[in-house]
Design a protein around this nucleic acid. Structure first.
Lengths: 341, 341
DNA sequence: ATGAAAGCGCTAACAA
DNA sequence: TTGTTAGCGCTTTCAT
């Protein structure tokens, strides 16, 4: 039988420290919580005792007693197209890094709509997107847990969100292509279960319409954001009787795939085909032709999200916030005027 | 003003439920914990009360009282070469998914060696690798917290680990190339702060030596696993006076970069240059030439890791485990005998 | 500046 | 099968 002292649990408690330091547990607690009202002498004794006993406070007890809680749950929908995207990773990295420095615990949930995970012990929630899991958001909202949704704009005035203006981003891309003289402009969409992909499609359509260009069904190909589908989409578009002279692609990683297909077919980029991506994924720089794209400030979104929920948890912020950040057109080498222009 | 009951904390406690259901709190606790010894009638009353009051048990209180805790911390070193790698992502996805279905809370730490995060409230830890953060592992070990290290083999007999045989993987790759007739074989390494990259390098060298081939310093280029450095490495190798006829690359994403560089220089793959990658990254299928590679069973490693710590937490497993999984050679189209062979 | 003591919300003997 | 009760380890008044 293993001795009980050897088990997972901490055997040393605040009481042991107090005894050893010759003070009350309240004083130890004050030292732990950096209260200024502890005599230097005592603080040192306590610190020394903590060191000697190798004491680590129990998080559960602290949370239970204080009613506070520094756990931030990040919920990422379990869709491959989302999880593997540059978007999700960059968000994850930004959020993870900031949580680390703010000493927040980051609880990660790769959830599908049916996941019924334990959202009860958390202090705040960040949704990387909402895809078929609206009820999880509702659960959080009902309980008044600080929360923010990224990448979805909500009109409901009780939900905070941070989105970028995807409509405008698409508009910028298409306007740019039109400005170069293109009128046969195709669009490869992302997964339309995401609001972002929907809005990019809307932006594309609306811009064509506003500029008096017709919207061809053949020129719109829907995908799930995967490289595989991007490849198929590119092949379909380029073997059309009247292939487009420019393609606006809903993500950089798909745009890279399109570029490969075009190159393989012997087309020159950008002379024979202009391509605009979306994301500003650094790997778009390593392509054969560096990619013109729409940049989204992902790290900034991540940071804003964490800062917001942190402020709410700390009571420094009480209002619902709706942030819409602007995308930016990054012009590189994958676009030029069409031939015979 | 918002009523106080509406704040973040749960106001309804087990006591309220007990009162409403007309039973004791112990019975409520039993219902929560699915104890079979509750009369159906009572269970239903309790369940109904829970529903009506919208009661959610406090995780902190449960943990404090029971001394148990289902939090699994995943520590991923904050190195771009690691975090962005197919390796880390696949691991993250595997671990995240399994935690979700086992109802384990996944705490994510993107840590650098200096991060001094809160590892005290956790039930188990999984290290995605150890890079300059050995002391964090020691912290866990000292406290007898169930733990496993992935991708590093430890001789110390108190640490569980799951690794793949990188040496053998490298050997398989190089043997295969030699078997095809190559003798000018270069190696682009991963980041040598990782044991995996070191072992692959060792495997490469050792195989050459065993087969009586010389080890050329010019043929070994060290990188940090990034695509950018892979690109430079490829350029360096291919502009050598006696360029290699085959390159063994420590990751698929780098191998793809190498392929691009070669193609751009007008080389034919595999006729002019054979390439073997490492990972079995699905994106290696979409390249211009599908990549021959060494497959590592990442999802399996992830699952084994979670299953292991889960079993230890539940007391079903008590021994330290050392698992070494075998990699596998996946032959596709990026290799053939060298010219003039 | 410090200590005593009352919980925080729950689990787990133990008793009934 | 159910209830009573003593903690779990800490925070936080309230005195002193």
């Amino acid at each position: 039988m293993v001795k009980e002292e050897d088990t997972v649990k901490n055997r040393v408690s605040i009481r042991d420290v107090a005894k050893r330091a010759g003070v009350s547990i309240a004083t130890v607690s004050r030292v732990i919580n950096r209260s200024p009202s502890v005599k230097k002498k005592n603080r040192e004794k306590v610190l020394e005792a903590i060191r000697q006993l190798n004491f680590v406070p129990s998080v559960s007890a602290q949370r239970l007693a204080s009613g506070r809680n520094n756990v931030v749950a990040l919920i990422i929908p379990r869709y491959e197209g989302i999880f593997y995207s540059f978007y999700a990773l960059e968000l994850l990295r930004g959020i993870g890094t900031l949580c680390d420095s703010l000493k927040l615990d980051l609880l990660l949930h790769l959830a599908n709509g049916r996941s019924n995970f334990n959202l009860s012990g958390i202090g705040a929630a960040i949704f990387a997107d909402i895809i078929g899991n609206r009820h999880q958001l509702d659960f959080i909202l009902e309980r008044n847990i600080p929360c923010v949704v990224i990448n979805n704009y909500f009109n409901e005035d009780n939900v905070s969100c941070i989105a970028i203006d995807n409509f405008k981003g698409a508009q910028m891309a298409v306007e740019y292509l039109i400005g170069l003289g293109h009128f046969k402009i195709a669009h490869i969409t992302g997964d339309l279960v995401t609001q972002a992909a929907q809005q990019r499609l809307e932006g594309y359509k609306s811009t064509l319409k506003n500029r008096g260009l017709s919207i061809e069904d053949d020129y719109i190909i829907k995908t799930d954001y995967s490289r595989g589908q991007a490849l198929q989409a590119a092949e379909k578009l380029l073997s059309l009787k009247y292939p487009p002279t420019a393609i606006f692609v809903a993500s950089d990683s798909m745009a890279l795939e399109v570029m490969n297909v075009a190159l393989e077919k012997g087309l020159k980029i950008p002379q024979d085909l202009s391509i605009v991506g979306f994301d500003d994924n650094p790997s778009a720089l390593y392509g054969k032709v560096s990619l013109t794209t729409i940049k989204q400030p992902l790290i900034k979104m991540a940071e804003e999200a964490v800062k917001y929920v942190d402020a709410v948890m700390k009571g420094k912020e009480t209002s619902v916030k709706k942030m819409v950040l602007s995308p930016e057109l990054i012009i590189r080498d994958s676009c030029c005027p069409p031939k015979n222009f």
